[in-house]
Design a protein around this nucleic acid. Structure first.
Ligand code: FES
Ligand code: FES
Lengths: 133, 133
DNA sequence: CTAAATGATACTAATATAGTATCATTTAGT
DNA sequence: ACTAAATGATACTATATTAGTATCATTTAG
């Protein structure tokens, strides 16, 4: 079971790098030179982050990307949601057969608790919290 | 993010069904008639459970499967491990670049805590705990 | 001997993840 | 106005994982 896919991983790295550049507009070329991540893939990811309003983009010559939010306001969970869809561990797993009345299913309760825990822990991680000085 | 794949799901259903049959040997035919799961797939799953010593099998005419353990001793985590491999949320996600000293990486610590929580919650779920009387 | 079962194993199909390619559009600099 | 350097949008390809099938060998009750 993977908690984080590569999109999310690269996105986080890119965001941390951008955060370190303090509002300088950074092009994909510059970014991949630094991070050594595959260029077109990285580009796609930045574009998605732009659509998600986590980045702001500038077109044309000398264009590129900057953070649209403060590092402390960019949460890992948000990235997960952008690239991996909603975090639903919760969805009923054992359909009809096993779960007679869904409200009190042992499984369901426990899985909800897991989900809450995951959200709480991940919800505390931001780009800011991973920045090294 | 899916916590449980279909193998694990079907396996759990099969085990619950077998538990309800109280030591009667059940053939795949009988099982899929009841559970309505795809036959050859279900068969493969039962064979895997047999290899994992969660089931015992009997060959030949009137053969089939019975539980090799008490329902309370069959844990959901075990099934997850059989069908989905080890539950490693933990593996380092952001390699070199982000994590200078791995022992104190914020992320790593939090993810370990998530993993522990997941294990604790799942570790409490057995076939027995899901049996309806 | 035979029918009904599992064992072992190889194959196929569908879906999700990872990544590429291409063309249109924008814009700073000359 | 032209050009080079950038992003926007979108379609495509490749790889891995998940889901499922097919087949033949072996075992065994009757
Ligand atoms: S798994 Fe959905 S109610 Fe039990
Ligand atoms: S993610 Fe591995 S040490 Fe930080």
């Amino acid at each position: 079971m993977k908690l984080i896919t590569r999109d999310t991983d690269y996105a986080m790295r890119a965001l941390i790098f951008l955060a370190q550049q303090k509002n300088r507009v950074i092009s994909v070329s510059e970014l991949v030179r630094e991070l050594k991540t595959p260029r077109p893939f990285s580009r796609k990811i930045l574009q998605q982050l732009n659509k998600a309003k986590i980045l702001r983009s500038f077109k044309g010559n000398h264009g590129g990307f900057i953070l649209a939010k403060k590092p402390k306001e960019i949460f890992l969970v948000d990235l997960i949601r952008v690239f991996q869809g909603p975090l639903e561990l919760n969805e009923c797993i054992f359909k009809k057969k096993i779960c007679p009345n869904r409200n009190c299913c042992v499984l369901r309760n426990r899985i909800s608790r897991i989900e809450n825990k995951v959200l709480a822990e991940l919800g505390a991680i931001t780009v800011g919290s991973l920045l090294k000085e």
